[in-house]
Structure formats: C-alpha cells, structure tokens
Design a protein around this nucleic acid. Sequence first.
DNA 1: AAGTGGTCTAGACCACGTG
DNA 2: ACGTGGTCTAGACCACTTT
Lengths: 240, 240
Amino acid sequence: MSRTDYPVYLQLRDRLWDWIETEELSSQQRLPSERELSERFHTTRVTIRQALSQLEAEGLIFRSNRRGWYITPERLRYDPSRDVGFNRYVTEQGFHPRTETLFKQLTEVPPWLSEISGLEVGTPIYHVFRRRYVDERGLLVEHNYINPAHCPGLLSESTDMSIWQMLREKYDLRPEHRDIEIYPLALKGLEAESLNVNQGAAGLYIQRLSFDQRGDFLELDREYWLHDALKIAVRIGDRH
Amino acid sequence: MSRTDYPVYLQLRDRLWDWIETEELSSQQRLPSERELSERFHTTRVTIRQALSQLEAEGLIFRSNRRGWYITPERLRYDPSRDVGFNRYVTEQGFHPRTETLFKQLTEVPPWLSEISGLEVGTPIYHVFRRRYVDERGLLVEHNYINPAHCPGLLSESTDMSIWQMLREKYDLRPEHRDIEIYPLALKGLEAESLNVNQGAAGLYIQRLSFDQRGDFLELDREYWLHDALKIAVRIGDRH
DNA sequence: AAGTGGTCTAGACCACGTG
DNA sequence: ACGTGGTCTAGACCACTTT
C-alpha cells in the first residue's frame, strides 16, 4: 500500500510550522504578508494560503479580517457547568478579560424561545448582546435572554460585568438545573462580523438554558466562540 | 455605513442552498460533479468549490474523499455524561449504528497517559481503536485505554459492542467521576484517513477520563468526531 | 477507460486597513 | 496612498474512484 504523495501545501505547512517555532513567534504576533511568504517559499499566493488555512484549522494561527495572520494564544479553559463569571475564570488563568455590550433591549419572546423556555410568545424579555475579549482578542459573542419577572430593572445595571453575579447578589437568583448544548458550527452574519472573522469561519456554539428551583425559566445564554479559543473541561459525578 | 459587496461565492452558496431545498435532496444523496455545477452556475471550479466549502463549514453538505459531495444527515444527539453505549443512543434516535475495531493491543502506558491517569509509565494497558458509523457514514474514531488490572482478558471479548456495558456487566465496574474535555480541532493523520476526510478537516475532540470509587484510573476515551456529526446535550444539576 | 475531486500556476482586480 | 488580504479567472496535471 503506497502512500499518496505529500502535497506541496502540506509541505509548506510543515515548513511554516518549523519557521514559526524557530523564530519563536509569540502569542498574537503577526506573520509576514502572504506575498512575502509566497516569495520566501517559492510558491504562489493561492498555495501559501492553503498552507496558512491548514494551520488556521489546526489552531496555530488565526486571521483578523483583512489585517493579516497572527499566532493563536493558548486556549482558554472553560467549564460551562460552573457558576463563575467570565471575568473571574479568565483572570484565574492569568489573562485579561474585557466585555463590551453591543446592545441591550427589552423585547418580546419569539416563538423559538417560547418553545424551549416555556414562556408565552410575546412575554417581555431582556435581550443583551455582548462581546468578550481575552487579552484584547475578541473570542466570543453572546446573546443573553433573561426573564424580567425575576429581575426587574436589570437593564439599568451595567451589563459589562457578570450577569450571573448580579442575578445572585442583587436578586438572589440561582439556577437549579441547566440544559447545555454544544456543537461546532460556522460563524455567520452578525456573529462573524462582530468577531472580525470571515463568513463561514469555524466556531463553537454553547447554549445554556437555566431554570430555578420551581422549574421556571431564568435565563438563556447563546455563545458563539472562535473554534481555536477554548477548551471545555467539566468534571461530572463528583459530589462536594 | 455601506455594506461590503456580496461576493460571488456567497451568492452561489445561497443559490446552491435553494437548489438543494427545491430538489429536496435527502440525507447522504450525492450532488452533481463540480464541473457540472460550475457550468450550471456559470462560474469556475475554484469558485464553486469555495461555495461548496462554505456549505460544508455550515454542515449542510459533506465530502467523502475524492468521491464527491453529499447531503449531511441530521446531527446525532450525544450526552457524554451518561453511561449509555453508542449503539443504544443511536438506536434510540432511529438510526443504525455500526462499530468497527481497527486494532486492539496490549501495550505500555506512555508518559502522557501516565500524567493524566496516575499509572506508572510502562504499566500494561489495553488500547482499542475503533470506528463508529451511523447509517453507514463513519462519524468518529475512538481510542480507548483501559486498565487491565480491573478487567483481565478484556481483549479476548468482542470490542464491537459497548465497552462500558461489558465493564459493567462482566467486571462490575462503574465510573465514580469523570473528567471531560471538549474542543474543536483539525482532523489529521490517522484520524483523518480513517474517516475518509481531508487532512485538516474540522472535527470535535471529546475526551473522557474515568475513575472508580477508590479514585483509581478506569478508562480513557479519546473521540474524534466529524464537526457536523453531533450535538452535545447535557443536563446539569438535576438530582434524580 | 472515463470521469472525478485534489492540487497547482500565474496572473488579475477590488475593498479595506493602516500609515 | 499604499499594501494587504479577499476574490476570481482560465487553464493544467495527477491520483484516485467508478464504470
């Protein structure tokens, strides 16, 4: 059984990988331009882009819309089952978090939300859309849908901090159980634009649907992460 | 703020999407050849491939090495925290599972495994490598590392069924807690070849590290899934 | 044997980000 | 204003799958 021949773009991938290692390029550092790379490695831009895309898929480098290629930082560890705010677990890992609220509004429950939350269509609902950074790289955008019946006046508060912390401290709300969904998807439309990535860039979707002790809908969280930004780590079955 | 102009390949994506809908192409059905599509939509193969790749990233279609483009089946729902075998939850969802053992061997604990399991380097360990199908599409490959101290003779058993079921029924072994890791990655090398996808195809990695009541290492499970094949769904915090 | 997808070339134009 | 990445053309050859 003979091996298929090893295509040029994969050879380039290997050489780029080695080159990045020997140059000791560090997190968020920029690579030379594609034209410069294609000259240096004696190939065309199309082929060097294929090699770069390969390394992008592997998570070694990433691109920021029309600005160039950069070294990907280490993945953030994330446990969606814990009740710890973004700012806290980012800080715990030695990085610098930042949150930007892109919009917040009082709106009405649409049919799809009614279906999973049990709220009636048309019921008032808070909707917050935020972007989260780690070390000034935008890693995810997040839609929060919160039941105003449980926390009137929430939108007047600053939403740049942890919503969970606020719910716990100001309104004494805690989730009793959660339904979590996770799957890979392509970042599109608003999410892709907000994260400065191409339409169709690989991402990870995380949804958390939280209910209180009485089984009432508390909050829905829909997160769109860059594919290379996180590593989910959960411990299951341990009773503390 | 004027919109950036909408590139041809995204227009093609939309037209392909519509075309697939109106043709009512069903799961696993093959699309026309790239040359035929590029004629039909009056463009070049490079551009039609960009549009196809977009739909691939979105999970609507997939490719099987050099054979063509096909309609992606519905995602399989999967709860890695439950103790239910692959065959069972696939069947529960109305699909047909199949498992193929690609190899199984008795080997020695390598350093990386020692680090996470607590076993000493060089200790005997079972290693099973399997491929799992749903409706005859290979969705994942899986490495199992099992502590033979707890289940001598396991390799003589058929490994085409649920290993967990076997551990429970034949050896009365149950995990007390588990460390689960999940993140997107690129499928490469052995994993890509075994799943008949390109080097660098998008995938999802799921690792489960299981310990028994005494805190002893039981089993390590490393799964490499196609990115479009599954939706993880977990309920947390509910006490039955 | 024919046709397919995978790879690759050598150009080109454009919109956008950065100086 | 310049250079960048993003897009696109019109070809070509090859390895592999299917007929």
